[in-house]
């Protein structure tokens, strides 16, 4: 059985089409990522799948159940961590957890093994009010609360947004452990580098999917040769390449610029020779493998 099946789903608000004819499937035990900036439709899609919003067109099933007709059954079986902080600010850590366990008709003890690794980190603060926790701690508590009824599938809406790179790494380690315990995970993120941590991803922009595949396959579909170029003055190099007649795209990527050329089969030496005639200092150029962000921008430009 597919854990999630989405077919041609549409959601509009007034004149805005938030989700525009999206289809995908998620298999048992997968980590499936919805990758895209704000306004891509990630949250609206999650709200439809967790039965909080009705689609305008199309349909979706979660655990084989229809999101409109069988919403009550779905709600018992899924865990949902919304993007905005969802906990009760004036309840303590342990009170929040107990509350969520109770409304789902279970106890903290019954499913403690599922949250143990995460909850241990929170235990020293269990008497503290949720509103007084740091961002990273709130995120961990929200995950515990979404897990406490042992859901078959977890929906995590931007759990790492605004979180520093170290805490983001820790959060992804937790997700991998949950996957090992057989929980299917749908997770959304605006951070393109997190795509590589998913089994499969849907790249989303303005309500539409740009591509749905494994991260490796998406990278393989990048059509152009990609070069990383560096010089002593990156801004000058950028301006120079922008004016270059054969330039296709040039984007800053950390200490390098990622460059593609309009010509086929172009070599590093040809570009280097051209730049050397312009007296750019400390030139370095190498052929590189594209990452998901390169692919995302290429797909955006195609549309």
């Amino acid at each position: 059985m597919k854990i999630v099946e989405v077919k041609n789903i549409v959601k509009t608000f007034d004149k805005t089409t938030a989700v525009d004819d999206v289809s995908f499937e998620v298999e048992q035990g997968e980590i499936f990522g919805l990758i895209g900036p704000d306004g891509a439709g990630k949250t609206t899609l999650f709200r439809m799948l967790t039965t909080l919003l009705k689609p305008v067109k199309g349909n979706a099933k979660v655990l084989g159940l229809d999101v409109v007709k069988n919403y009550k059954q779905i709600r018992k079986k899924v865990g949902y961590m919304p993007g905005r902080f969802s906990l009760y600010q004036d309840l303590s850590v342990e009170e929040n957890l107990k509350f969520f366990a109770t409304i789902f008709g279970t106890t903290v003890e019954e499913n403690y093994n599922l949250i143990k690794d995460i909850y241990i980190l929170l235990e020293p603060f269990k008497k503290r009010k949720a509103g007084k926790l740091s961002g990273g701690m709130k995120q961990k508590l929200a995950l515990c609360c979404a897990l406490i009824h042992k859901p078959d599938v977890l929906f995590l809406d931007e759990p790492t947004t605004g979180v520093d790179p170290v805490s983001r790494n820790e959060f992804w380690d937790m997700l991998r452990k949950l996957k090992e315990q057989g929980i299917t995970i749908l997770v959304s993120t605006p951070y393109m580098d997190e795509a590589s941590l998913c089994d499969r991803v849907a790249l989303m922009q303005k309500g539409k999917t740009l591509s749905i595949d494994t991260p490796d396959n998406i990278i393989r579909q990048f059509k152009k040769s990609l070069f990383a170029i560096h010089s002593e003055n990156q801004y000058e190099l950028f301006q120079t390449l922008m004016k270059y007649e054969h330039r296709n795209t040039v984007f800053p990527f950390g200490e390098f610029l990622h460059y593609t050329d309009k010509r086929e089969n172009i070599s590093e030496d040809e570009i280097k020779n051209y730049l050397e005639t312009l007296n750019l200092k400390g030139l370095k150029i190498k052929s590189v493998k594209p990452n998901i962000e390169d692919c995302f921008m290429a797909l955006m430009e195609e549309k």
Binding site: P37, D38, T161, G162, P190, F251, P252, F296, M300, E301
Partner: peptide, 12 residues
């Protein structure tokens, strides 16, 4: 954090 949540083209 001026660029949080912005698409990669706009960010650049």
């Amino acid at each position: 954090e001026p660029t949080g949540g912005v698409d990669p083209l706009t960010r650049r």
